[in-house]
Every structure is written in C-alpha cells, then in structure tokens.
Amino acid sequence: MKKLINSTDTVLEESLDGLAAAHADILLLGVERKFVRRRTLKPGKVALISGGGSGHEPLHAGFVGIGMLDAACPGQVFTSPTPDQMIEAAEAVDTGAGVLFIVKNYEGDVMNFTMAAEMAGREIVSVVTNDDVAVEKSTYTTGRRGVAGTLIVEKMVGAAAEKGMPLAALKALGDHVNRRTRSMGVALLPCTVPAAGRPNFTLTDNEMEMGVGIHGEPGRRRVPLASADDIAAEMLNAILGDLAPGKGSEVMLLVNGFGATPLIELYLMANSAKRILDGAGIAATRFLTGSYVTSLDMAGVSITVSVLDSQAKELWDAPVHTAALRWGI
C-alpha cells in the first residue's frame, strides 16, 4: 500500500484538518470533526446535510458552502457516519426552516441517517439517491446504490434551498432530480482501504470490473479490458435504456474519475460519451468532467446522465462556492 499518510488511524482527521485549513473562508469543523459545516449560515434557509463513508473526496465535505450543502458528516473510510454526527450537525446548522438529509442508498447510510432523524427531535426529511444502473432493480433487494449522481442532486437542491424553497418542495425536487439521473461505473484497478492495507480485489493487466460502485467492491462482471468507446457505449446503453429520455432531450453529462484516473483520460471519455449521445439525438448541454465522487485510489470512471428541464438548468447554473465546485461567486 502506497499512500501519502502518517498513520492509518489518522488519515481521516488529518485530511479533514487540511480541508478546513485550505478553505477556512467557507468551512468550519464541528467538535471532534463530527461534521464539516458552512461557516456562515443563511437564516430562514432549509439546512441541507449529507454525509457518508469517507474515501469519496471531494464528496461530501467538498460540496459544503454557498449554494450547496450546509453540513457534511464524514464517516470512517467506506463506513457510514454514526447518528450522533448527523444529530450534532443538524443542531449546528438548522436555522429553524427544517433539515433535509441527502443520503446515498446503502443500508448502512440509510439506517444511520434514519436513527439520527428519529433521535434528533426536530423536523427532518430525507432524499435517498439511487442512481447506479449497474445494480439490477428489484423490490426484494436493497435496490440501487447512490453514486456520482448524488452530486447533481446536492447541487440542484442546494441552489433551490439557497433561493428559499421550503422543505417539502426541496424533498420533492431532490426525488425528482434523482429519478432523472442515472450512472454506471467501471474499475481498471482496485483501491486500498488504508486500515485494511490490501486491495479488495485484484485484476490482471487485461481485466476490468464492469458495474462497480464506489466502495472498492467487485462489480457485477469481470470482463476483458475494452476501449473507451466500448466502455462508454455499454454504460450509456444501460443508462439510456433505463432513463429512456426522448429524442431531442437535453442532458447533463458527468464523467467522473474514481481517484487515480488522469484528466486526459476523463476528457477522452467525455468525448466518447458525447459522440454516442449525439448519435442518439440527445443534446448534452451541461458537462462536468473530473474526479468528484471517488473511491480512494481506484482507477476507473463513471458516467452519469441527468435529464435537464429549464428548472434543472437554472439550478445547475446558479452560483456555488464550495471547495470542489465553484462558479458565479
């Protein structure tokens, strides 16, 4: 395991301290680093809180700030945070307009956020994101994972909250954006949890894992390494098959690196994906290309497509000032 760390026990703490120092103008750390919060709250605004296991940086703490989240609760690496974190974060950032949790659909996350909502003694509503089409949907199972599409939900709901949208409407908006957003991922190389010290799986030089999530878990299938075009085609086939956007639809294209994927490859993938969308008569009019929802040092990429309407475009384009996304401010 080769990592820039001091000790496997303190990775999370030290990284959070670095984040807080580098973005002291907009961020504050909660006591015992239980949460990262927006420095200046906006009274009367619904408080948006997200969180999840660490190892997905910049998600979620990198999306705390003006026009996005009010607080993020970082769990241990790949481990949902505990209810006390969400309870204390809610205590710190609720200005009286209620609290919305944005939770990725994993049983650990859902259970911990649910317990927090039960125990917090304040009005809390949750949006659960589940954009990963790699997981086949079934009413009997856990359902789909929340992956990179979560950032689109956080951005759009964050922009609406900043404009004063009330809690119930934000919940409806979050669910709506989530339903119109689908993702799929592929890993070329596995990742290593610092405390585990060894990767969760190994791949030969000619293999990749198709349909992986963001926790270093194996995907649905191990397949031979394929070209960028073929990978993009398989992913978009699954995504578009599920989303079924009409011809002439406008979409946002998010090409997301998993942590060890260089930008030159991500832009190349964006190009492959755009060509396929063009061919399907779907207009990608918003792009985000970079490593935003990662899986430690995993090499690979996910593609997310989110169907846009005029409200969605307005919310995406609205000013945002966070550690990882910034424009208009």
């Binding site: 209810p83 259970m111 317990m115």
Partner: peptide, 12 residues
C-alpha cells in the same frame, strides 16, 4: 455500538 461503529453493522 450505534455511536461508534457506523455502517450497516452499527445500527443493527
């Protein structure tokens, strides 16, 4: 355990 474990096993 609820406040220290996290993940699925903590609440369960």
């Amino acid at each position: 355990l609820v406040m220290k474990v996290g993940g699925a096993s903590g609440p369960l």
